[in-house]
Every structure is written in structure tokens, then in C-alpha cells.
């Protein structure tokens, strides 16, 4: 029989496990939850260390006894839309609901969480901030995310070479996940790719917190860089929260418009993988340097 103390800690442990299962405590690993007891009675309640509840694949047919199951499977294969999901009364099956919530959670965390200091340290790049002061302002005032703070201008001026051929920098944009899951591979691949193309006059990369696409204009002007490359987190979709874009511009000015930018989007493991994208971008930048223009003018000659 469990003592009162044992019982209490057992309840706490089970609650923690339930929370972890539902994704509320993403960083709590089952193994790190303190073990309560070594007796077999308790072991039957505690899950094995590597057993997790996971979402079933989205391709699963959830309709209760469809007339033509093969037809449902064939139709599901034609679209990424959430069809053939069945129902509980008029509502979603539990799995469908949880899948939706899981997808939205990925998107929300990508938008609302910061790129971690630990990641920036690991990358060895310094951080500056736009005129935005917090996450809410970043989302509601896109105009401020296009302008550097005074401290940022100073820090960039002190730490970066001027008049370089190519200046690369990273901005969180609308997805911190896009940065954390792609930049560690993309940035070195891009630099090596540029060097491989014979482009060695490359500026010091850095990170812009609360940055939008148009901040690259001010950075290009400040450093008098020939080509500016911004690696920025895209607005997450429900299926992809970690997609990154590269916005490349040749000699930006205050009059730069969107059509002057060359954009490569959908950089992530499920799209163009970061290493591949690095090589591709290097080739593109070489073309831009040669043509001395970017954006629509580059494609239309």
C-alpha cells in the first residue's frame, strides 16, 4: 500500500506526464520525471521510458465504414486538404482535432517565440534590433520592423566591414523556427558556395531581431554593400512552420520597391533543403553581381 507521501508524488508525476503528452510541457522528457517507486505495483502505471503517444499520419482515413474505401484513399492522395476525416456527430474526430491543434501550435510557437540566445551563440553571430520593442509591436507595426534602432546602426557600423561585395544577414521575420532549423546549415553552405564562385569579399553576418524584409535596404545603404542577402523566416502555414526565404537585392536605395528584390522562398527540409539552397543562392548572387541588377529587371534582362 502506498504511503500518503508516495501517493501525492505519484499524482504529481501522472499529471506531468499527461501535460507532456498533450504538448504543454514540451521540454519535459519522460525520463527526466522523477521515479516514485521501484515496486511492481507502481511500474504498471508508469509508462516505459521510450513510449510516447504520437499523432497518427494525416493520410489515415477516419470515415466510419466508407462505401468505397479505395475511392476515399485515391481522393485523399489528390490534395493536401483535410478530407476523408469523418466525424463525431457534426464535429471532428478526436484525432482530427488534435492534428489541427498540433499544426497550429507549431505555427504559433514559430511566430511568438524568440530565436534563442543559445542558437545565436552557437552560430557565433551578434544580434541587433529594429525599432520594434516587443513581439506585439513586431506583428502590428510592420513599418517599424523595416528600420534599425540607433544602437543597431552603431553596432553594425562597428562590427561590419563596409563596401563589401556581398553582405548576408539573418532576420527572424515571422518564424523563429525557420531560423533555428535552417540557418546552421544554410549560412555556411551559402558562404562556401560564394567562395566557390570566386566571391570572397563577404561581410560579417549578424542577426536582426524583429526584422522585416525591407530592413535590408537600410543595411545595404549603411554598409554600402553591392549585394544584400536577407535570410528571413516566412509567415507559417498550418503545415509548415519552419520555411525560410532569401531576399536578395542589388545596391538598395531609399526608393527600392518590392519588384527590385529577387526572392527564393520555401527553404526548409520539406521544400528546398538548406544545403542545396545555399549552393543555389550562391549561383544566383553571382548572376546578380554580373548583371548589376536584381528582381524583375534580372529576369526580364
Amino acid at each position: 500500500m502506498a504511503t500518503e507521501e508516495n501517493l501525492e508524488s505519484m499524482i504529481v508525476q501522472n499529471v506531468l506526464k499527461e501535460l507532456a503528452k498533450n504538448g504543454f510541457l514540451q521540454n519535459v522528457k519522460t525520463a527526466s520525471v522523477p521515479q516514485v517507486s521501484e515496486t511492481p505495483t507502481h511500474r504498471s502505471i508508469v509508462n516505459d521510458a521510450d513510449e510516447y503517444i504520437e499523432l497518427p499520419p494525416i493520410s489515415e482515413i477516419l470515415i466510419h465504414e466508407p462505401i468505397h474505401k479505395e475511392t476515399v484513399a485515391a481522393l485523399k492522395a489528390m490534395t493536401p486538404a483535410r478530407i476523408g476525416v469523418g466525424r463525431a456527430g457534426p464535429r471532428y474526430r478526436t484525432t482530427t482535432l488534435l492534428h489541427y491543434l498540433a499544426d497550429h501550435s507549431q505555427a504559433q510557437d514559430a511566430v511568438f517565440l524568440d530565436v534563442s540566445d543559445e542558437f545565436l551563440q552557437r552560430m557565433g553571430i551578434f544580434e541587433v534590433q529594429t525599432q520594434v520593442s516587443d513581439r506585439e509591436e513586431h506583428l502590428t507595426r510592420p513599418d517599424l520592423g523595416c528600420r534599425l534602432s540607433r544602437e543597431a546602426r552603431e553596432k553594425i557600423s562597428v562590427n561590419c566591414k563596409k563596401n563589401v561585395q556581398v553582405q548576408v544577414f539573418v532576420a527572424d521575420g515571422l518564424s523563429s523556427k525557420a531560423i533555428e532549423s535552417n540557418v546552421a546549415e544554410l549560412l555556411p553552405a551559402l558562404i562556401q558556395g560564394l567562395q566557390g564562385e570566386g566571391i570572397t569579399d563577404i561581410g560579417t553576418p549578424f542577426f536582426v531581431k524583429y526584422g522585416r524584409v525591407r530592413v535590408e535596404d537600410e543595411i545595404g545603404i549603411l554598409l554600402n554593400a553591392e549585394v544584400v542577402v536577407e535570410l528571413v523566416g516566412e509567415r507559417p502555414g498550418l503545415g509548415t512552420a519552419n520555411s525560410l526565404s532569401a531576399y536578395i537585392i542589388y545596391k538598395p536605395t531609399e526608393k527600392t520597391v518590392e519588384a527590385d528584390r529577387t526572392v527564393v522562398s520555401n527553404i526548409h527540409m520539406g521544400g528546398t533543403p538548406p544545403v542545396e539552397a545555399g549552393a543555389f543562392l550562391a549561383g544566383l548572387i553571382k548572376d546578380i553581381l554580373k548583371a548589376k541588377t536584381s528582381g524583375i529587371k534580372l529576369t526580364t534582362g
Binding site: 493536401p80 486538404a81 483535410r82 478530407i83 457534426p90 464535429r91 498550418l238
Partner: peptide, 25 residues
């Protein structure tokens, strides 16, 4: 009315087929 409320082309969320049936009920 959108499958599972998730528009896979426009990338936003709106009323689902299930919500349609529910509101009528």
C-alpha cells in the same frame, strides 16, 4: 466551408465543413 478549416492554398483558417453542419444543427 473549407476541409478541416485549413485552406491549403491561401494559408489561413476559416469555417470548416464540420462547422457548417454544426451551425445548422
Amino acid at each position: 466551408g473549407i476541409p478541416g478549416g485549413d485552406d491549403v492554398m491561401l494559408s489561413y483558417q476559416d469555417t470548416s465543413f464540420h462547422d457548417n453542419a454544426t451551425l445548422r444543427e
